[in-house]
């Protein structure tokens, strides 16, 4: 305690960088925000955690019926349900996480106006909630793999965590940007669901990117930050390496969005309490 008294804290007009030391100091709050959101999400629901599994399962069924059976979309030698479920699974980190993150600052406005803590904790935790749903659904996916007796490469041990990391980064970039914009301009509330839906069809989640015959179109779609995450997640199953150019484009776009999102968030975060 005596040491703490010696410490000086200075409050002044703030700089341009995140104070990572401070964020580390508040690390327990990541856990508490995530834990709170998961509790609240599944309280007073009849099926509880089953919802995390049910949604991708139903989507898989629908896509299998329409795209797999009716339209006969190729699926890189995987059974179409496996193909589509693997895509949806990793995509859902992004879609759920992005919609959580984008609304997180507005939803927690009452706390933000009253108590100080590094604001970045709020969107990050809301993305971690999506990661929890992912882990639930992952258990189901494993049983689907067993059911279809799908061979899996050992590379799974680094491709899967890497794909998860990439999808979290993609979500954080766009998510923190939208979270800040949403505080400033409430219009974004209406843009977000639409944006997610558009991105879903523009990212090769339920169809292979090779379906597009023009290389230029492939390059264009690879700018989706989620493209590389989806490809990497599927890699241990299909065993076919994607076009490296496309991978780099997607990785680059992922990092650009992360920087834009974080910088914009940092620039506005000081004033959240004034405008929220």
């Amino acid at each position: 305690m005596s040491q703490l008294r010696e410490e000086e804290f200075i409050i002044e007009p703030t700089g341009n960088l995140f104070n990572f030391k401070e964020i580390w100091h508040y690390r327990e709050l990541f856990y508490f925000f995530t834990w709170r959101d998961i509790k609240i999400k599944y309280k007073q629901t009849m099926l509880g955690f089953l919802w995390a599994i049910l949604q991708p399962l139903l989507m898989m069924t629908i896509f299998t019926l329409f795209f797999g059976r009716a339209l006969n979309i190729p699926s890189q030698n995987l059974p179409y349900p496996v193909y589509v479920f693997s895509g949806l699974l990793i995509w859902n980190i992004f879609s759920t996480g992005l919609s959580n993150a984008a609304n997180s600052m507005v939803n927690n406005a009452s706390i933000i106006k009253k108590i100080y803590f590094p604001r970045l904790i709020v969107p990050v935790s809301s993305i971690l909630v999506a990661l929890f749903d992912f882990l639930m659904a992952l258990i189901l996916f494993m049983s689907i793999l067993i059911f279809y007796q799908q061979p899996v490469s050992w590379t799974i041990i680094f491709y899967w965590p890497f794909a998860m990391l990439l999808s979290v980064i993609a979500t954080l970039g766009l998510g923190s940007w939208l979270a800040a914009l949403n505080v400033k301009y409430r219009d974004f509330r209406y843009v977000i669901p639409f944006l997610i839906q558009v991105l879903f069809f523009l990212t090769p989640v339920i169809y292979p990117i090779t379906l597009l015959k023009y290389p230029m179109l492939q390059y264009a779609l690879a700018t989706s930050p989620m493209y590389v995450a989806v490809e990497f997640f599927r890699l241990p199953l299909t065993g076919s390496l994607p076009n490296l150019d496309l991978v780099w484009i997607s990785l680059g776009s992922n990092i650009v969005f992360l920087l834009i999102g974080l910088i914009y968030f940092r620039k506005t975060e000081d004033f959240f309490a004034d405008i929220a």
Partner: peptide, 24 residues
Amino acid sequence: ITPPTSGKIISRGRIASLLEVGTG
């Protein structure tokens, strides 16, 4: 919660506020 436009505060101890009890 909000930064000053100008000026400086030096605090030699942890500050906690009860701007409104029961927040969160």
